[in-house]
Amino acid sequence: MGSGGSRAAQVPDADRIRRETGFSQATLLRLYHRFRALDSNKKGYLSRVDLQQIGALAVNPLGDRIIDSFFPDGSLRVEFPDFVRVLAHFRPVDDEDTGTRDPMQPEPLNSRMNKLRFAFQLYDLDRDGKISRHEMLQVLRLMVGVQVTEEQLESITDRTVQEADEDGDGAVSFLEFTKSLEKMNIEQKMSIRILK
């Protein structure tokens, strides 16, 4: 037996997950091995504690928020398919991914719009569809730490919200968020090379 086919069989429901996430068979297998390595007690799922072992998340100022995204609706565990779906948002966009997509198929998880939705939810803590001044301030505080004074931070927050808030309601909607990031290459900023 060839090692590629027999090893890929270890990934449960691999074909469906590959279609859904766009990951190659080799990447999916690597992610499955990483998932199993993080599952230190061999429970078959990951907890917050398991994800906190990931060094890149431990040093990322938004690490806790990213970990939260693995546990929607207060869930206490993430199984492999959901683990991979979250990571798919960080899969780089391939040139062949654009322009050849069947419009009847769901938008890829790593599309610009889905990357923006993912980023928006890191700010919108109360899930009300808007980023309030308070939520923006919390995120900026995490990102800059003690490098700026509280007064400077509040000024940056006010300016950021004011510039993005087109309807004047004092908060940033998803549409306003996407417009404010229109010129940013979000596809590259929200990519992890190993997730090809």
Rank of each mutant, 00 (worst) to 15 (best):
G63H: 07
F23D: 04
R117C: 04
A56F: 11
M143R: 09
T100P: 00
F35S: 03
L137H: 12
E151R: 13
I131L: 03
T149V: 04
A56Y: 12
F118T: 03
P92W: 15
R18E: 15
N60A: 09
L122Y: 05
K43T: 11
N110P: 00
G99K: 05
L153T: 09
S75R: 14
P108S: 13
Q25I: 14
Q53I: 02
D94K: 12
G129D: 06
E20D: 13
S40D: 13
T100F: 11
D94L: 14
G129F: 06
L31C: 07
R48M: 04
G145R: 06
D128L: 01
L125F: 00
T100N: 10
N110F: 14
R91G: 09
F70M: 02
H89L: 05
A56H: 11
P81I: 02
M113P: 03
L31A: 07
F23A: 08
L29A: 14
M104H: 09
D128E: 10
L122A: 07
L76E: 15
E151M: 08
S132R: 06
L122I: 01
S132Q: 07
F35I: 01
L46A: 02
L51T: 02
I67S: 03
K115E: 00
R91D: 07
E20W: 03
P81V: 04
D68A: 08
P81L: 12
P81A: 12
A26T: 15
T27Q: 14
R30M: 08
